[in-house]
Amino acid sequence: MRVANRIIAALLALGLAAALLLGAVEIVLGRLDRDYWIVPWPDWYRTLRTTPWDDTGTRVAFGIVIGVGAILVLLQILRRRPVSYPLEDQPGMAPAVLRRKPFERALTDEALSIDGVHTARARAGRRRIQVQAHTNRLQPKDLEDQLRQTINSRVSSVGFAEPRPVVVELEHRAAPNTNTDGRVE
């Protein structure tokens, strides 16, 4: 979402600057009784003189303006995951924040370092931290506990300013003709 905002902001800044400078140039040309350069403003002027407010074209134009405005505002008010998390503020410690993305990558790698974990994905939200992992083992036994301990240990070693609950989920392969809860069908 931030990338979309950056692209929109850059395009908008460039587009508005170009349009405004072009408008100024056309005004100067008009004052000098010269023909228009790029913007066919005499045609636009005639259209505005003949098109009533309740014309469908006018409504469509304002509808587009409303739509663009609504999209811009919605993009700004959408709640995003934080870029970084504040760490505990203690005297004798340098003030610090923790970057979310590298933290998620580190937790993912930590989960993958456990023998038996095949794939993993860590996701830090506004409040909690979630790790989803998958193992190819038919019976993971204590693997989930091991994973939970490892992730909890890493999270506690960071020293967050606020406690962040950790949710760990481990999926495992079902045995042939067996449910994931171990019951034979």
């Binding site: 970057r99 993912t108 993993a120």
Partner: peptide, 12 residues
């Protein structure tokens, strides 16, 4: 600004 890094490159 702390950016944790680990040495392992695995299947994410």
């Amino acid at each position: 600004e702390v950016r944790p890094v680990s040495g392992r490159i695995g299947d994410r």
